[in-house]
Computed example of a mutant assay.
Amino acid sequence: MINDFFKKFLNKEAIIDKYGLKTNFNFSEEISKIYSQKTMSILSNKVLIKCTGDDAENFLNTQFTNDVKNMKNNSVMLSGYCNPKGRLISVLYIIQLDKEFYLYTTLDTFEPLLQKLNMYKMMSKVEFVIQKDILVGIAAKNENNSLINCVLNTKEAKKIDQSVVFKIDDNQIVLQTNPKEIESLLDIEDSSILGYKSFDFMDIDSIIPFINDSQVESYTPQMLSLDLLNGVSFSKGCYPGQEIVARTHYLGEAKKSLCKITFASKKEISINDKLETADDKKSAGEILNLVKINNEKYNSLAVLRKDMLNKNLTINGATVEIMEQVTKND
């Protein structure tokens, strides 16, 4: 769905799908705008959930892979939510603002996430409320962003009147606001309005391993390198799947790892296409997230077998270049 506020900004080339505004311009043009102009992406494929109640902090800490109790005020933390077998149901950001918490994740995974959280909360005093107002992503490359009079450090969050703004990465800011406040917070008239796919491109560029509905319960945190991205604590107490995640950390090693890749193909590539070795066609991994930048070029996050990282890889016949393998963050 597209908020009525943004309908007047739709371009004649706009593409709308089941989530909302996918692209407002030609996609290669949208990417160019990210690097050269003030932009904001309508995040119709993401969701922000507010968590309130006296037991919110304690309960959330028993559910997620990261240490909620270790969060500083007005901060942002990457985390995951697993089933009892240690397979991820959702990858998300936790935002802490005073005594309130927010969860930022994909529209594809919020329903199974909330279903499990509500099942486990039992008598805990905690409530989850989906924020249904405007949610936009702001490109903050070279400080060329559309926020007015608001400076954020990376992984910092602020509440401005009824709006919530937080910086998940050096180049990405997320704002949840409403039609009454948006024009006082954003330089709307001097900015380009983009579709959600432009922020997917930035998620891939920043190596943020969000998952979609077809990938729920497919990967452990280590397979998505969530431990290397500071999304897992190995010193906190129990959470669903903790024993398996910890055992992999202390007694073994995940056989797969997250990588950023690129390739060019005249054939249409989908998220369901598999990566394989060029010579003997052995399975090498899967696509996690994917954007098509122009007529042929794709950027992607892929889950690759570690024993295949030094092999020549292809996808649907196209040669794959590994741009970056995830290593330990500082």
Rank of each mutant, 00 (worst) to 15 (best):
Asn3Trp: 11
Phe5Lys: 03
Lys7Cys: 12
Lys8Ala: 13
Asn11Val: 03
Ile15His: 13
Gly20Lys: 11
Thr23Pro: 00
Asn26Asp: 14
Phe27Gly: 06
Ser32Leu: 07
Tyr35Asn: 10
Ile42Phe: 11
Ile42Cys: 04
Ile42Gln: 04
Leu43Met: 14
Cys51Tyr: 01
Asp54Arg: 11
Leu60Trp: 01
Val68Thr: 07
Met71Asp: 07
Lys72Ala: 14
Lys72Tyr: 12
Asn73Gly: 11
Ser79Val: 03
Lys85Tyr: 13
Gln96Ile: 02
Gln96Phe: 00
Glu100Asp: 15
Leu107Trp: 10
Asp108Glu: 13
Thr109Gln: 07
Pro112Gly: 04
Asn118Gln: 12
Met123Pro: 02
Met123Gly: 02
Glu127Gly: 01
Val129Cys: 03
Asp133Leu: 12
Ala139Tyr: 03
Ala139Leu: 00
Asn145Ala: 08
Ser146Ala: 15
Ile148Gly: 02
Leu152Phe: 07
Leu152Asp: 04
Val164Cys: 02
Val164Asn: 01
Val165Glu: 05
Phe166Gln: 03
Asn171Cys: 05
Gln172Cys: 12
Ile173Glu: 02
Ile173Cys: 01
Val174Asp: 03
Val174Lys: 01
Glu181Asn: 11
Ile182Phe: 11
Ile182Trp: 07
Leu185Trp: 03
Glu189Ala: 15
Glu189Tyr: 05
Asp190Trp: 00
Ser192Gln: 12
Phe201Arg: 08
Asp203Phe: 10
Asp203Gln: 08
Ile204Val: 13
Ile207Gln: 13
Phe210Cys: 06
Gln215Arg: 03
Gln215His: 03
Val216Asn: 08
Ser218Asp: 14
Leu229Asn: 09
Leu229Pro: 12
Gly231Tyr: 10
Ser233Glu: 04
Gly237Ser: 01
Thr248Arg: 12
Lys256Asn: 13
Ser257Glu: 15
Cys259Lys: 07
Ile261Ser: 02
Ser265Asn: 09
Ala278Tyr: 07
Gly285Trp: 07
Glu286Leu: 11
Leu290Val: 13
Val291Asp: 04
Lys292Ser: 09
Asn294Pro: 13
Asn299Phe: 14
Asn299His: 15
Ser300Pro: 10
Leu309Pro: 14
Leu313Tyr: 01
Ile315Glu: 04
Gly317Asp: 06
